[in-house]
């Protein structure tokens, strides 16, 4: 049963990744088109990882699971910002990434303190 579900999950995952990686078909317009298609498919795979995180936020049996998934989701968004900056050539997207990393760090610390049951000014 377990092996069966693993095989099923692996097949679904490989199919989704292959579909995402070739979904915008690279027209043969030269190397730049391949480059743009590469950035787009990398972005879609990051979105898939984000969907897996959101599944854990939704299903997590305890609040700590949800907190872990939210923390990891913040780090994924930093990666998305870097890909945006590269795809559009606007370097201020990376500023958003830096700010997001620091803010999600502070938020995770505060929520961990709250989970621990201590006052925040300790």
């Amino acid at each position: 049963m377990r092996t069966l579900s693993w095989v099923l999950g692996a097949v679904i995952l490989v199919a989704v990744v292959c579909w995402l990686a070739v979904y915008p078909p690279p027209l043969d317009l030269g190397p730049e088109a391949h480059y743009a298609a590469f950035v787009t498919s990398a972005f879609y795979i990051l979105l898939l990882a984000g969907v897996l995180c959101l599944f854990r936020v939704l299903r997590g049996p305890t609040s700590a699971d949800r907190l872990v998934a939210l923390d990891i989701f913040g780090v994924l968004i930093v990666g998305c910002c870097a890909l945006f900056a590269m795809g559009t050539g606007q370097s201020w997207y990376i500023d958003i990434g830096i700010t997001w990393a620091l803010m999600s760090f502070i938020g995770a610390l505060a929520l961990a303190k709250y989970l621990e049951g201590r006052p925040l000014d300790d």
Partner: peptide, 17 residues
Amino acid sequence: FIGGGVAFDLFGCLGLV
């Protein structure tokens, strides 16, 4: 580098599930 990083992100989130 970007391809490897994206693959490891996906594996990490798979581990989360």
